[in-house]
Design a protein around this nucleic acid. Sequence first.
DNA 1: CGCCCATTTGACACCTGTCAAGCCTAGTGG
DNA 2: CCACTAGGCTTGACAGGTGTCAAATGGGCG
Lengths: 211, 211
Amino acid sequence: MCSASHRCWEGAITTNSGFVVKRRAVLERGTTLFQQGERFTAVHVVASGCLKLRETNEDGGERIVAVRLPGELVGMEAWARGRYPYTAEAAAPTKVCQLQWPHAKGCAPSTALLERLLRKTAVQLEHSTRVWMSLPAIERVAAFLDHFAQHARPSVDLPITRAEIGSLLGLAEETVVRAIARLRAQQRLDMQGRRIARVVRERREPGAQGR
Amino acid sequence: MCSASHRCWEGAITTNSGFVVKRRAVLERGTTLFQQGERFTAVHVVASGCLKLRETNEDGGERIVAVRLPGELVGMEAWARGRYPYTAEAAAPTKVCQLQWPHAKGCAPSTALLERLLRKTAVQLEHSTRVWMSLPAIERVAAFLDHFAQHARPSVDLPITRAEIGSLLGLAEETVVRAIARLRAQQRLDMQGRRIARVVRERREPGAQGR
DNA sequence: CGCCCATTTGACACCTGTCAAGCCTAGTGG
DNA sequence: CCACTAGGCTTGACAGGTGTCAAATGGGCG
């Protein structure tokens, strides 16, 4: 029974809900939870810290697919395909919960587990449709920083570089830097180095070029 | 028992697998399966045709969130939130299967159903991470047209306007038009009006501006 | 025919990627 | 303690991609 279960499952989890946390792991910064291409073994939930999901393209190029913050699922995508499509690396000291997988031998699939998983996956699916595609660079950066500031537990400094933010958002490193500078100039962002104090999302600028 | 179940669930579905299709509906072009903001009632699977998922922003702006082709889930995102986050409209004559929802009265949740749903949702989640973000406009258009041509069953003309493609890809309508023109000039696309005959994805151009 | 809408094309501005250079901090070794 | 290095961060110059505005073309339908 996880003492922080309310954070992950937003609701009381009864001990006989079918939920089993097989293992809780602590990852040092820089260590990987699994590598891209590895066989699927389990789904994890981030308990604290931050994971960055890195994908190596067939051309050898790398890109950050996503960052996962406390409460978010990691590795669900690998279930259908059998292999993890990305590498999960701890961007900061991170705790993860490995969920008992229904098909483990001698363990009948639990309806409650499946429902919870399905619900959580649906949430992530919805979130992934809320893409900031077609927003100008400055708004994408603001949205990302805001999201990070809202969900990082415990409140930590940004554990990734500007270049990685750019990779994540589909922007060049320099564009991220300039967007941050402009947000600060507009009083929309209070941030020094990697420490975020305050972010204001989407204050509309008249005449701004949409996309 | 759906005669085309192999398409939706990629594998034989036994009659007692726990899968129940509650209702099969035929939607004329322009009719909606559900409206944004409506209470969640069920998850559907597209059997044939094409749905376009439209979202009205708080600013009143509309954007196409996605198109759903045969075999894809519709409405899963609404389960967790309770309301549909987008309007699902038939872009072409469309058949959908409404899945029996586990929590319907008197119907115990079926493990098999949940597993299938979860697997399918995971596939969609993975697909949504494969965003063509940071690709130049021409490649995004090529990828979309290729995806549509591959998955449309039966093979139909593109049921959406260039402006809608642009909205979906985060591009301006004119950019989509010009991308199509350039793809045709490069012999990568055989398409007249809305009829796609052939698409070639990602032929690399040296010196192309990445993003 | 006349209207409406989708599609296309052109001109232009600006956002953003690329290249280059410099600054800053942390870490290392002398 | 200080020189040195490496990597992250910042800034500038420039070009190309893309959004915006405007207008023309074409097709469907009353």
